[in-house]
Amino acid sequence: MGKKLWRVVVAGGAAAVFTGVAAVPAGAAEGGASFSRVQVNGGKPVVLGVSKEVAVPTSFRVTTAHPVKWSMAFLYRVDTSNHLWHGIETSDCIVVSPSVCDIDETMYFEPGLYDMRNSEAGAWKVAAEVRFQDNSGDTDKKDLTVYVKRNSRLTVNASPEPAAKGSTITVTGKVTRANWETRKYASYGGRLVSLQFKPTGASYTTVKKVYANSSGALKTTVKASTTGTWRWVYYGNTTTGKSTSAGDNVVVK
């Protein structure tokens, strides 16, 4: 919290400017503008690992009678002065009418570049801001929540391979989670993870659910009945994204 950064890169090198009417149009807020049709990432959470930049599509409509330097949607928690630190690239005005513009925006998140902290994972609110040519502005809070989550990972190993029919198969694995501060994945203990099985030529179904130990390790046993593939699935929470391991095929003879 308390960090604020945006990089406004406008197509064509010019800021969006509305050639508005003389009076504030119907629907514009008292501050000089109103925002509608705000969308961030299609309503899906923003899930971040430890290094890769993630581009998040964002769009909104702004209605105003005043010439505009730039406008953007952004994420905040306590109040609109506390932005989540990330890059923003905006489009020029896509003219709907003389006083209405649609804006296409991309939010860029990269934990290393933007010095993200683990405490910043979770729910964020959405606001939109416009800066007018006379350097005044307007900011509106929107009734919209975006979850920014730490990526999770799962591994799997099923053995023995092959297995005799009716014998015991041991399935192990580990669940880890991105640590934005160390730029590494760390054990994510205590998670409830689903063990799934897919017989050859069929679909996955959940066989049982297993809690990871304090080190994130997973271990359980099942009976070998038919050839197929085993995998782990973690469904995530408000701060952590869901993940699915690769599949491990075991031939049953």
Rank of each mutant, 00 (worst) to 15 (best):
M1W: 09
G2E: 15
K4M: 11
L5Q: 08
R7Q: 07
V8D: 03
V9I: 09
V10P: 00
A14E: 02
F18Q: 12
T19H: 03
G27N: 07
G27W: 10
A28W: 01
A29T: 06
S34V: 01
R37I: 00
V38S: 08
N41A: 12
P45T: 05
V46F: 06
V46A: 01
V47H: 04
V47T: 13
V50L: 00
V50Y: 00
V50Q: 02
S51M: 07
V54A: 04
P57Q: 01
S59F: 01
S59M: 08
R61D: 04
R61Q: 13
A65D: 06
H66F: 11
W70M: 10
S71Y: 08
A73E: 07
L75Q: 10
R77A: 08
D79I: 07
D79N: 15
W85I: 06
I88Q: 10
E89F: 05
E89M: 13
I94L: 14
V95L: 12
V95A: 14
V100Y: 04
D104M: 04
T106I: 15
G112P: 02
M116L: 15
M116S: 05
W124F: 14
V126A: 07
E129L: 13
V130A: 12
F132D: 11
D134Y: 11
N135M: 13
N135I: 09
D138F: 13
T139P: 11
K142C: 06
L144N: 04
Y147I: 02
V148W: 06
S152H: 07
L154D: 05
S159P: 00
P160Y: 12
P160K: 14
G166V: 08
S167R: 06
T170F: 01
T170K: 11
V171W: 05
V171Y: 07
G173M: 03
K174S: 11
V175R: 03
V175Q: 03
T176S: 14
T182K: 14
R183L: 14
K184Q: 13
Y185T: 08
S187G: 10
G189D: 03
G190P: 10
R191Q: 15
F197Y: 14
S203F: 10
S203Y: 13
K208S: 12
K208W: 06
K209F: 08
V210I: 13
S214N: 13
L218S: 04
L218W: 10
L218E: 04
K219F: 05
T227E: 11
T229P: 02
T239V: 11
T239P: 04
G241I: 05
K242T: 04
T244Y: 12
D248T: 02
V250D: 06
V251L: 11
V252T: 05
V252N: 07
V252K: 07
V252W: 06
K253F: 08
